[in-house]
Amino acid sequence: MSSNRQLTVSRAMAEAIALEMRTDPSVFVMGEDIGTYGGIFGATAGLLDEFGEERVRDTPISETGFIGAGVGAAMAGMRPIVELMFVDFFGVCMDSIYNLAAKNTYFSGGNCKVPMVIMTATGGGYSDAGQHSQTLHATFAHLPGMKVVAPSNAYDAKGLMAAAIRDDSPVVFMFHKGLQGLAWMASPEEAATAVPEEAYTLPFGEARVVRAGKDVTLVTLSMMVHRAMDAARALEKDGIDAEVIDLRSLVPLDRETILQSVAKTGRLVVVDEDYRSYGLTAEVIASVVEKDPGLLKAPPQRLAVPDVPIPYSRPMEQFVLPNAETIAAATRITLGKAG
């Protein structure tokens, strides 16, 4: 009956959390402004009204304290969801994340588990400057012990959130501010999707072929899926048939889908809104090359933020972020059709 309901990503996240909280009393949420405000980016809207202050807890501005508390609560049998308001703030609390949440399972030889979700807002493009605009995908994906997801649309967000809550390992759920469908921030139309009302999960490590194509493979995730799709539509007019892959999770990484696609197209463009060096773009390219360098008919291309902090001023910020035009241009280069 309601499969035609189009939800925004923020509402899909809140719905996934509510469904889990209804069935599992060990799930609770804490973070800054997640109660009355409903989360600055709407991911917890409505939860306080339904579940009350015990299970939906506004915290002081004390990330080391409350994320550390999330680790302790998780090890004590709860399933906390903690929100780090902007991923950029990881600097004040990373120890709780990468030395505790991520390592305690290993340190205990598998005798302890840390089933917590750290959800955090990523991304720029709206002039919020270099401490509020990063994605930092690779920073988290680089460190062992955390699963890392970054959905591009509401359907995926709901399924991945439910899977994250039920997972026995710590999961970093990176949601892009510009995909949330907030009334006050521009969002691509395709980010809001049909979302079933009932609970469902999506597996981690399964990329989605958003657009099938035979000439070139565009690999990306989160906001850049929409930019890559815009590029693919523009390229289609020139007779270029691009395949677009949405990775959906960084850890685990679905190398198989990438390899299958590149085996078919022989050309690879990787797009990431994170910094360029030592990041996702390099990881994807290395995954192909170390398997079989012969798969590539042309040098791969990568688009990411040149290794500079995100500038505030609009012309400079737009310059450092990949967009449909730069993706299309890079694609033409791999096809030898530049200029």
Binding site: M1, S2, N4, R5, Q6, T8, G181, A183, W184
Partner: peptide, 22 residues
């Protein structure tokens, strides 16, 4: 109107959240 949660022509149940106004 900031968001429509159903598209034109959709069957909607009573009480469903239809739209968000800003």
């Amino acid at each position: 109107v900031a968001n429509w949660f159903y598209s034109d022509g959709a069957e909607v149940p009573e009480g469903a959240t239809l739209a968000e106004l800003m």
